[in-house]
Design a protein around this nucleic acid. Structure first.
Lengths: 226, 226
DNA sequence: AGCGTTAAGTGATAATGTCACTTAAAACGC
DNA sequence: GCGTTTTAAGTGACATTATCACTTAACGCT
C-alpha cells in the first residue's frame, strides 16, 4: 500500500517493530488528519496516543504572560511528539503548546499499544529514544543560541535556511520574531538594516534575498551552522 | 545493605526492575566515585554507561565561543544523565558538557545491561522515561525564563531558593551569572541594587538575605514559582 | 471607493550585555 | 608578618535588544 511505504520510509525502524505475536505495530495504528491551526496539546493536557507526523508541520511554543511567544521546535515529516510521550509516562505538566502549522497527517499509536511495543520491540524503542535525543539536542542548541548568538546572525541564518535568491520567504515579521524569540520591532529594524545594505528586499509579507553571500558572511563557521 | 537501601529510596523503580532471569538490575551495576571538578562528558564523547547519581551534583553546561557559559541543569541525588543515555542510543553529538560540582557517587549500568533491562522491565523503562521527561520540561522552562523573565526576578528567585535570612549563599557573582546565563557585571549591579534597598548584604563570596519578603514580592505568582 | 484588518515603521526609553579597565579581598610563600 | 599573586568585585562608556505607545501603509472586502 502506498501510505504504508511512505510511513516506512519516514520511520524505517517501524518495519522491524513487531510484537511477540509477530504483528507489526503499523497494524495497530490509526491515521489522523488534523486541520491547520489546531492546538493539539497545551499545558496540563493528558495525552492518550503516541503521535507520529507523516506529513505537515506542528510547532511547539511556549508563551509568556505578556503574550510574547517563542517557538521551541517544529515537528515535521518523520518526527514524533516526545512531549506528549513524556506525558504518556510521567504525567507531569508540560509548559508548552503544540499547534499545527499546516494540515497534518499523523499516525496515532494508542497508549497500551505504545507500552506493549516499547517492551517487545527493540527497534521501536530505538525509534522512540532517537526522537527524545533529537529534541533534547534541539532544545539545548536553542538555549545556546538565545543566550549567546546575536540577533542579526540568527536572523541571517533563518533567512538563508528558509529562502534563497529566487525563492522569497513569505512570512510576517511577527512570525519571525516568535521563531527567534524576539520582538517584532526588533526584527523589523534588523531587516530594514539588511535592506539598506542591499542584502534583502522587503515587502508586506515577503522577504527576498538579494545577496546571499553577504548574509552568509555574518554566520560563524561553527558547529551550529551546517 | 545500607547503600542498597539508599539507592532504592532514590530510585524506587529499580526495586522492581528485574530481568527475565529474576535478577535485579542492581546486581549488574557498578559504583563509581568521581572527584569534584571532573568533566564526565563533553561534546562528541561516546558513553558506555547509563549513569545514576547517588550523591553529589553534576552541572550540565553549554559554552559560547567567547567563553560565556550557561548552566542547563543539575543532576543531583536520584537523577540520571539522560544526555549520555541519548548518546547510548542515538550517538548524535551533544552540544553540552557535564562537570561534577562536588564529589559524586554514581551507579553505572553498562550499555548491554541497560538495553536488556529496557526490554525486560517496565519499571525500569518508566524510570528512564521519567528522567527524560523531567529534563525536557526543565529545558523548556529554562528557555521560557531566559526569553521572557527579567533578570531581577530570576536573581531573586535563585537567591530565595538557595539561601534564607540566616543561611547565606556562598558563591561568586560569576557562578551566579553562569547559573542564570547572564554576565558577571550585570549580576554585580543587580545585587548592588538589592543591597541598596537593604534586601541583601554582600561580601566577597557571600550573599546574605536580609529581607526575604521584599525579595519575594518581586516574584510573579505563576506556575514557574513554587 | 471606502472601511476594517493586519503588517510594518518610528521614536523614546529601559534593560541587558560587552569591553576595558580599576580596586579590593583573600591566599600563598617565605 | 609582609609583600606578591590570584581571584572577586566594582565602574564607566557604549552597543544591543526589549518595550511602549503610537503612526503609517498595504491588503481584502463589499
Amino acid at each position: 500500500m502506498e501510505l504504508t511505504n511512505t510511513i516506512l520510509s519516514l520511520f524505517p525502524k517501524l518495519n522491524d517493530a513487531k510484537g511477540k505475536d509477530g504483528i507489526n505495530i503499523l497494524e495497530h495504528c490509526q491515521q489522523m488528519t488534523i486541520p491547520e491551526g489546531t492546538t493539539i496539546f497545551h499545558q496540563g493536557d493528558q495525552c492518550l496516543n503516541y503521535l507520529l507526523v507523516i506529513s505537515g508541520s506542528v510547532k511547539v511554543i511556549t508563551r509568556a504572560e505578556n503574550g510574547r511567544e517563542i517557538v521551541l521546535y517544529h515537528i515535521t515529516s518523520g518526527g514524533s511528539c516526545v512531549l506528549t510521550t513524556s506525558c504518556l509516562i510521567s504525567s507531569e505538566d508540560y509548559p508548552a503548546e503544540g499547534v499545527t502549522e499546516t494540515d497534518v497527517l499523523a499516525l496515532a499509536i494508542p497508549k497500551p499499544v505504545f507500552e506493549q511495543y516499547m517492551g517487545e520491540s527493540k527497534a521501536f524503542r530505538k525509534q522512540v529514544f532517537h526522537s527524545y535525543g533529537d529534541r533534547l539536542i534541539k532544545l539545548i542548541t536553542l538555549v545556546e543560541e538565545i543566550s549567546f548568538a546575536k540577533l542579526d546572525i540568527r536572523l541571517a541564518k533563518f533567512l538563508l535556511e528558509h529562502g534563497s535568491v529566487n525563492t522569497p520567504i513569505r512570512t510576517t515579521h511577527q512570525v519571525l520574531a516568535t521563531e527567534l524569540g524576539s520582538a517584532r520591532e526588533v526584527i523589523s529594524r534588523q531587516l530594514k538594516e539588511f535592506e539598506n545594505k542591499g542584502w534583502v528586499k522587503l515587502s508586506r509579507g515577503k522577504i527576498e534575498i538579494t545577496n546571499h553571500d553577504a548574509l552568509a558572511t555574518l554566520l560563524p563557521l561553527t558547529k551550529s551552522f551546517k
